[in-house]
Design a protein around this nucleic acid. Structure first.
Length: 756
DNA sequence: AGCACGCCGACT
DNA sequence: GTCGGCGTGCTC
């Protein structure tokens, strides 16, 4: 019987394809190995999923595997089977899922294929990385005979001993003759030269001195003991580490990782997208040195590959990164940590829409590893899992530094309290006074406003018409930058500000509302002596944000104005005042999670106020001070909020008391999109689960953002308390997709987070 | 997703 | 008379 194999090919098709394995390749065709196969009439790179003995199924002529690319399978078995499960859970094509986890192809391997006479023109588009290596010189313990070394050799050795090790190229910058000097030192046994693929990454630019693990407080020690216990049993276990801001969660993580490494196992650490800062990485490096791979979006293809390989070979056992770190090929995985587990950025919102927090639980379970989800404001999903006993709750109730007091939180009712001297409604008198006071005391303030730009809308004063995007159903935001332009925050369209209203032609356009750009200006004018800076996506992407936060820490900024980005910076120096300009913006979104997210946001910004020695003050401005999220945030009562919100959710039957799957349907033509959504809904309703009403079919309905990038959007929501039933009905509805008009795009979103 | 095959308009 | 439009159907 011939040997067959299942190959996942990089096409958006749900299933894999069978190929015949030529006897010569039988030994190297193993699950997780990449192979070159003819697919259609082109050659593509696929991944072997499984092999089996058997005959070709009814009347298909199997093609043979052309060549095996990797001498060893690139994907460990544990990771490969995890990816297959992820693919089936999210209704995502296996090829797409594999692409998330696969490293680039090494040039060396491609050359080997070329040498075999397989010169696949199409493969040129595959990511390739070269095996360029860098020579490092490392000093040995040997001691030279006095007087043997002179000049550059002596200086180079001194420098090496001071730094530990250095790339020879770096030495050459200082000593023109470094290469010869190193050669001489090597011949004397004073240094060794090692060729390596270095992590050439900013996070590793300078060595980090080892830290001394601080003593744990009682709660930390108890939490650590529970995690340690689970690690030593080597059985799957999952924890929810519920610790208030500043309670020392990170130290518990560090201990848990150390415990994991001590047992010879590896760890994955996931943090929200914007939390992966040099500060955080420094902390991990201080404990684990270079036994750490930092996976982040700034990595070049070859850096990423180098990191990937170091993890895969076990040279590095701890991988830290944003959601995609869940795919790190850590061998003998013992621990998966998710910090700030409630954060929305763990859900991928395009392509394969996986939730990295959920997948962390899954992967850890399958690997018999320990999962730890940490947060000061846990998601309702996790809280509910804890109540069901599926997560073990560990509490850190106190701030690690006892003397640190919680900030005093007050609200300003925007309906009743008028503007301060600036005349702007969102800079209320109490906020203005508080700013004056903190500036006078030489302290810093943060003003949080969830709106970029200068003015959120451009309104005609004579007819009331609001300027909207031509391809999206949203108002255009006015940005002052570059001479004043209107921009769509959804499709990134940008155009000049017209002289007259598009509707009634009256030349009476007015800017309405307050964005961060205008707030920065308003504050700078009202407080001319203050150094005011702004932090949002318009002024800072990536590294620039870190630079602004660093200035804040250094005390070079008095008032920092910004969006979400200001809520994530830790240790922001001398901040004693935090102003939330408009809490309602986040709390009144048309989403059943708006209250939960708004609350998390309030707690997070409030956490930026106050230092060890000085209590902070938080002012929350809102049109509805009585709403629960605001009230519980004021009292710093996370548990009570969770309680309240859980009761609300139970009543309306939304997660975590049910599960959802969402079909997002869009097309250029409104009717075409609506009809397609109708077809999906009809299919879902005719499924056995739909008919028995075990699964509710809600919709089709126009999406809250009815038009985006010129496409009309509809949704069909499936809801059930029974996850199996939901899955089955989703499957039935998804089966309708191929029959739908090809001009329509349909995506299935399991466990959706962003409902817009 | 590609890439073919396949039937109807403006060009050498 | 052909080159080419993108509709639909398949890829082991």
């Amino acid at each position: 019987m011939p040997l067959l194999c299942e190959v996942a090919v990089p096409v958006p098709l749900a299933r894999a394809f069978s190929y015949e394995v030529p006897p010569a390749l039988a030994a190297s065709v193993r699950p997780g190995a990449r192979v070159l196969v003819e697919f259609g009439r082109k050659k593509v790179l696929g991944v072997v999923l499984a092999t089996s003995e058997g005959d070709a199924p009814e009347g298909v002529r199997l093609k043979p595997i052309t060549a095996v690319v990797d001498p060893e399978p690139v994907l460990p078995g544990e990771l490969l089977s995890f990816l297959r499960e992820l693919s089936s859970y999210y209704f995502a094509p296996i090829g797409e899922v594999l692409r998330l986890a696969l490293p680039a192809v090494e040039r060396e391997d491609v050359r080997a294929l070329e040498a075999q006479g397989e010169l696949p023109g199409t493969l040129s588009r595959v990511k390739q990385v070269g095996g360029r290596k860098i020579a490092y010189a490392r000093p040995t313990d040997a001691v030279e005979e006095p007087g043997v070394l002179r000049g550059q050799a002596a200086s180079a050795l001194a420098l090496l001993r001071a730094n530990g090790e250095m790339p020879i190229a770096r030495l050459e910058e200082k000593f023109g003759n470094a290469r010869a000097a190193v050669k001489k030192l090597a011949s004397l046994g004073l240094v060794v030269v090692e060729e390596r693929e270095p992590p050439r990454d900013a996070f590793f630019a300078r060595p980090e001195p080892k830290d001394e693990p601080p003593a744990l407080n009682e709660a930390q020690a108890a939490a650590e003991a529970r995690i340690e216990g689970a690690l030593s049993e080597a059985k799957p276990a999952a924890f929810l580490l519920f610790g208030v801001t500043g309670s020392g969660k990170t130290e518990v993580y560090l201990r848990a990782i150390a415990g994991c490494l001590a047992r010879g196992r590896g760890a994955i650490v996931m943090v929200p997208e914007i939390a992966l800062t040099p500060q955080l990485v420094s902390r991990f490096r201080a404990r684990f040195g270079d036994d750490l791979a930092v996976l982040h979006s700034g990595l070049s293809e070859s850096d990423r590959h180098a990191m990937w390989k170091r993890v895969r070979t076990g040279a590095v056992r701890v991988a830290i990164g944003a959601r995609s770190a869940i795919f790190a090929p850590v061998t003998n995985l013992g621990l998966v940590l998710v910090d700030e587990e409630h954060d929305g950025s763990f859900k991928q919102e395009e392509g394969v829409r996986y939730h990295a927090r959920d997948m962390a639980l899954l992967r850890a379970h399958r690997a018999s590893a320990v999962a730890v989800l940490g947060s000061a404001t846990p998601s309702l999903e996790s809280v509910q899992l804890a109540r069901q006993g599926k997560l073990v709750e560990l509490r850190l109730p106190d701030r690690a530094h006892r003397e640190a007091t919680l900030p005093e939180v007050t609200t300003v009712d925007l309906r009743r309290i008028g503007p301060g001297p600036t005349g702007n409604k969102l800079v209320s008198l109490p906020l203005h006074r508080a700013l004056e006071k903190s500036l006078a005391a030489g302290e810093q303030a943060i003003l949080f406003l969830n709106r970029r730009g200068f003015a959120p809308s451009v309104v005609c004063e004579s007819c009331g018409h609001v300027a909207t995007c031509l391809s999206c159903s949203v108002a255009l935001t006015f940005h002052r930058a570059r001479g004043g332009r209107m921009r769509c925050h959804y499709c990134d369209w940008e155009g000049p500000m017209p002289a007259a209203c598009a509707e009634c032609k009256a030349p009476s356009l007015a800017l309405e509302g307050l964005g961060t750009e205008r707030l920065e200006e308003t504050i700078a004018e009202a407080f001319p002596a203050a150094r005011v800076a702004r932090l949002d996506r318009d002024v800072a992407d990536g590294a620039k944000a870190e630079a602004i936060l660093a200035k804040m820490r250094a005390g070079e900024i008095d008032v920092l104005v910004g969006t979400q980005m200001v809520t994530k910076g830790h240790d922001l120096g001398n901040v004693t005042l935090v102003g939330v300009l408009n809490a309602d913006a986040a709390l009144s979104l048309p989403d059943f999670r708006a209250s939960e997210r708004g609350f998390q946001l309030l707690v997070q910004v409030a956490g930026r106020a106050g230092r060890r020695d000085r209590p902070g003050r938080v002012i929350i401005q809102t049109r509805n001070p009585a709403q629960p999220a605001v009230q519980f945030a004021m009292r710093h009562d996370v548990s009570a909020f969770l309680e309240h919100e859980l009761a609300d959710r139970a009543e309306v039957g939304y997660p975590p008391f049910s599960r959802l799957s969402l079909f997002r349907v869009d097309a250029l033509d409104e009717d075409v999109a609506r009809r397609a959504a109708g077809v999906i809904a009809a299919h879902a309703k005719t499924s056995p689960e739909g008919q028995s009403r075990v699964v509710e079919v809600l919709g089709p309905a126009a999406a809250p953002l009815a038009r985006l990038r010129g496409r009309y959007r509809f949704r069909v929501l499936l809801r059930s308390k029974d996850r199996r039933a939901l899955r089955a009905a989703t499957q039935v509805a998804a089966a309708a997709i191929p029959e739908i008009d090809r001009r329509v795009r349909v995506v299935v979103d399991m466990d959706p987070v962003a409902m817009l």
